[in-house]
Design a protein around this nucleic acid. Structure first.
Lengths: 125, 125
DNA sequence: ATTGATTGATTACATATGTAATACTTTATT
DNA sequence: AATAAAGTATTACATATGTAATCAATCAAT
């Protein structure tokens, strides 16, 4: 059973808003998204509806309006998306992605230090 | 200009076949995919056509049939897909993905060693 | 109470994708 | 040469997605 529903790109933006803080009314979501998108409020309401249908979020009647909140955790979704991404692109293996991208990406010395600490911790498990 | 076209999940499987060895005729692609998919040959031909339209692949008349080959490199595509994945899920930052997944994934001691070596090399740059 | 504004529900429409079937051409076979 | 087989091109159709508009219900203001 696939715990988490398929969440599209646009829907994902809405989820991020709700994950960062919820419950929020449709208007609050619209406001939050105005900053970095130019979506019509109608569009955002459509996305909210679709996410409700998909049972990615839900809502409660707060006073006169709906207040939306996630029912799937960011963690679950990130994990699931990453897994399907890895499967698709790298045949499911995590290390090739790491190797590939560690080489490509610009990481600050601090980042590198942090990652090494994590790796050290893992060796001790 | 987005160098690489959008390649869907199903199309990606076809690309992988052609990246692994090309040119190949439609039939050869079908054969290669029979192993791990149950797609109808007609479906695979549709995917080939769409990839031609998208200019992800091209073909030449080899004898009596077409021989398909990629015109976009796997590297480009992987890079582009990974970038859009990162943007979507992690807001474009690579490190959070790393941190998240280094914690989650089971990596062998050898893997960890290898990754540390890469990180060490990077510190020296 | 009626009217206008706001919110929520329903409908719309184009493009993408999964998944083929059908039609048309060219090659091979009798 | 006529027909069958194989390959290519065109068409099909449902679901997903981006992107709203319109309709209906509710709340607020006169």
């Amino acid at each position: 059973m696939s715990q988490v529903p398929q969440i599209s790109d646009a829907e994902w933006e809405v989820m991020k808003v709700l994950w960062s803080s919820s419950p929020r009314t449709a208007n609050e979501v619209v406001e939050a998204l105005e900053a970095h998108t130019d979506w019509n409020p109608k569009t955002i309401r459509t996305l909210l509806s679709r996410l409700v249908q998909k049972q990615a979020i839900s809502y409660s009647q707060e006073g006169k309006v709906y207040a939306y909140f996630p029912v799937v955790s960011e963690d679950e979704c990130v994990k699931s998306e990453t897994a399907s991404f890895l499967k698709r692109i790298y045949g499911g293996a995590f290390k090739p992605l790491l190797v590939n991208f560690l080489k490509e990406e610009k990481l600050s010395p601090e980042d590198i230090k942090e990652l090494k600490v994590i790796l050290d911790d893992k060796s001790k498990e």
